[in-house]
Amino acid sequence: MQVQTATGISSLSTTAQKQVDRNKRRRKFSQIALVVVLLLGGLMMIFPFVWMISSSFKRPQDIYSLSLIPPVFTLDSYRTVLNDTSYVRWFTNSLLIATITTLSVAFFDSLAGYTLAKFKFPGATIIFVLILSTLMVPTEMLVIPWYMLSIELRWTDSYWGVMFPGVISAFGVFLMRQFFMGVPNELLDAARIDGFNEFRIFWKIALPLVKPAVAALCIFTFLGNWNAYIWPLIVIRSEEMRTLPVGVAFFSSENGARFDLIMAAASLATIPVIIIFIIFQKQIIKGIALAGLKG
């Protein structure tokens, strides 16, 4: 198993030089093997994605051709999507909704996860199980009660109406609780002795230690809301309030779908998610440095 190679070698004494050289060679070899294996695996992974991108540049009649390179390269589907539909508006709606939801989830879920991991108050376990239990009912069965609530409160066809069921996520609370459990209590107690109040301990001491988890949470919350379909479909009535997945659903009809348009729309829709991923991925990598410094 090549997964762990010795690091921190520089601190070894010169008497172990031979061992180090051997390690280096081995490491170089395993690095190359690893790159090759991961590259091959990665290519298999992204194959359907590449096919999607390539299809978005094909003419409707070429959509089903097996070749990865479009027989006739065309931007028509992009043109249709961008000019003849309200794609830009839908895109903006989704961006706004996903961003606000992500910020809200990142804050509240971290706070709740931290509380459930580090505070032992009466009822904490019950609250945790109750929150977890909310993951156990499929969304499809919740939309009608939500819709009735939205009508009651006049939230239909509004951004808030689309957002409200997702501004705090049980999934994220669970994730953050798991990660906060790894934060040493001594650190928090030390801060208490220094006279920090509890919120400040959370915000200044605990939260920075779980940055990788927060970053992962942000990626997935953004993505989840970016792709959310069934609830926005129900709560939105007007064309200008549609989110991207709801808008794209209009490319499908009773007797088939406009795959060329779906491919173009879906390809464009991956751009912001990939950007979000790149931004937050850096945070996950930065996590190493922090964890390394900590001890």
Partner: peptide
């Protein structure tokens, strides 16, 4: 990392 993450962001309707 992006290589392995991409399938997750791709909409199932499209793929």
């Amino acid at each position: 990392r992006a290589l392995y993450f991409i399938p997750y962001v791709t909409s199932l309707v499209a793929v």
